[in-house]
Amino acid sequence: MAGHQEFRKGDRVTWRSHGGEAEGVVEKKITKRTEAGGRTVDASPEEPQYKVRSEKSGRSAVHKAAALHRKQGG
């Protein structure tokens, strides 16, 4: 099984949101259990999660690497 993608701060990514696709920028890699986006994020070094900011809404959300896709050609 292939390892999950790694993302860095500033990477442009897309993710599924409310039946559509959202686009934004990675703000932070989270590698430990923490509070973010109004909920507990159960992240670890082996299963990092990423705080991303939506370009459209300006709001931040936290997603697992598997939910994010690197924006192509941008």
Rank of each mutant, 00 (worst) to 15 (best):
M1L: 13
M1I: 03
A2E: 14
G3H: 10
G3T: 07
H4S: 12
Q5K: 12
Q5M: 15
Q5G: 13
Q5R: 15
E6W: 10
E6T: 10
F7N: 04
F7W: 12
R8T: 12
K9C: 14
K9R: 15
K9N: 15
G10D: 07
G10F: 06
R12L: 10
R12I: 03
R16F: 08
R16Y: 03
S17L: 11
S17C: 10
H18N: 14
E21M: 05
A22C: 05
E23C: 10
E23K: 12
V26Y: 03
V26I: 15
E27Y: 01
K28E: 15
K29Y: 05
K29G: 02
K29I: 08
K29S: 14
I30A: 00
T31L: 02
K32W: 03
K32H: 10
R33Y: 03
T34M: 08
E35D: 01
G38W: 00
G38Q: 02
R39L: 15
V41E: 10
A43Q: 07
A43Y: 07
S44F: 07
S44R: 13
E46P: 00
E47K: 15
P48Q: 02
Q49N: 14
Y50C: 12
K51E: 15
R53W: 13
S54T: 04
S54C: 11
E55S: 04
E55A: 11
R59K: 13
R59I: 04
R59V: 08
R59G: 03
R59S: 07
S60A: 09
S60M: 01
V62W: 05
V62F: 01
V62L: 02
V62G: 03
A66Q: 06
A67Y: 09
A67E: 14
L68G: 03
L68N: 04
K71M: 12
Q72Y: 02
Q72S: 03
G73I: 05
